[in-house]
């Protein structure tokens, strides 16, 4: 048997396992979803909220596990509570939103860690939640990420111009009749759903990178917003697919390998940015 055939068999071997097939679907979709949602997060200069929200939601997982309630509902409610608390603090005290995010979400994360250390975790393994684990991916995770991805696509398709206008120039969008409050609220809900649905594969500590890196790479390659959205989704999906395979073959957690793969995209885009931009760039002529 030739070396190439052996390599192909080695590469295809993990696909024999159901857990890996589930994992690769979730990782690929998670990468694409984070890339697309992350484009809005990055362009709103809100990169820190993805980091904060994922940490806050970990606290919800821990408490939900302790109370024996549905983990996704618990994490979702916890994330929503954290977001509302941040909003209330910012409105009532003269501190910046970045400081409020820092205080609330790290406190929620620390609370989760304390709960897990004192009472243990009835839910997924804490290390798996923190760094992602292909073994932790179930069929329910596959359906969850498919559902969230469909909702995200529908939201972006139906509200594309409102989202773009609000992200680029919220004040003018509001003045010309766009319901910017509703758009912002729905984007936060989508961001929370993205974090919850990708947590098992990417891990709490690395979700922020998956939200930010593909979007930043895409931004480096194009000056056109729709192209940036598509590129970020593709870069995220490829990072998820390649990173998940690397995770299996190197026997390390999936979150770091996915993030490192997207980091390679960043290095390539950074190093070869100008020629690549010339190829992808912006359209010459109206869209």
């Amino acid at each position: 048997m030739s070396g190439g055939a052996v390599l192909a068999i080695d590469f295809l071997k993990p696909f024999e396992f159901e857990f890996f097939r589930n994992g690769i679907i979730v990782a690929t979709l998670a990468g694409a979803l984070c890339g697309v949602v992350g484009s809005y997060v990055v362009l709103r200069n809100m990169s820190y909220i993805g980091h904060g929200l994922s940490h806050a939601i970990f606290g919800g997982y821990a408490v939900a596990g302790l109370l024996g309630i549905n983990l996704f509902l618990g994490a979702g409610a916890w994330g929503l509570l954290a977001a509302l608390t941040i909003g209330a603090i910012v409105r009532s005290r003269p501190i910046g939103s970045d400081a409020a995010i820092g205080v609330v979400t790290t406190a929620a994360f620390a609370f989760g860690l304390v709960i897990v250390q004192i009472y243990g975790s009835n839910g997924p393994n804490a290390d798996a939640l923190l760094f992602g684990n292909v073994l932790g991916v179930t069929l329910a995770d596959v359906w969850l990420i498919i559902g969230v991805s469909i909702c995200a696509l529908a939201f972006i398709f139906l509200g594309y111009r409102q989202l773009l206008f609000t992200t680029f120039d919220a004040e003018v969008a509001k003045a010309t009749g766009v319901n910017t409050g509703l758009i912002d609220g729905l984007l936060m809900v989508l961001l929370s759903a993205t974090v919850i649905s990708t947590m098992n594969v990417l891990g709490v500590t690395l979700i922020a990178a998956s939200l930010v890196v593909p979007a930043v790479v895409a931004r480096m390659l194009t000056d056109s917003f729709p192209r940036m959205l598509i590129l970020a989704g593709v870069i995220g999906a490829v990072s998820g697919f390649v990173g998940m395979n690397a995770s299996y073959h190197l026997d390390v957690a999936s979150g770091p390998t996915i993030v490192l793969t997207s980091a390679v995209f960043f290095i390539v885009a950074f190093a070869a940015g100008v020629p690549l931009r010339r190829r992808i760039g912006v359209a010459h002529g109206a869209h």
């Binding site: 111009r161 773009l164 004040e171 003018v172 010309t176 869209h287």
Partner: peptide, 30 residues
């Protein structure tokens, strides 16, 4: 708006910038 308030690094072309203005109600993304 005042040009000082514009994010000039935002990835939009002239056509995309003008086109986003017609945003009320349902519109095609393109």
């Amino acid at each position: 708006p005042q040009v000082e308030h514009i994010d000039w690094s935002f990835p939009v072309t002239v056509a995309e910038c003008v086109g986003m203005a017609r945003a009320r109600g349902w519109r095609t993304p393109w």
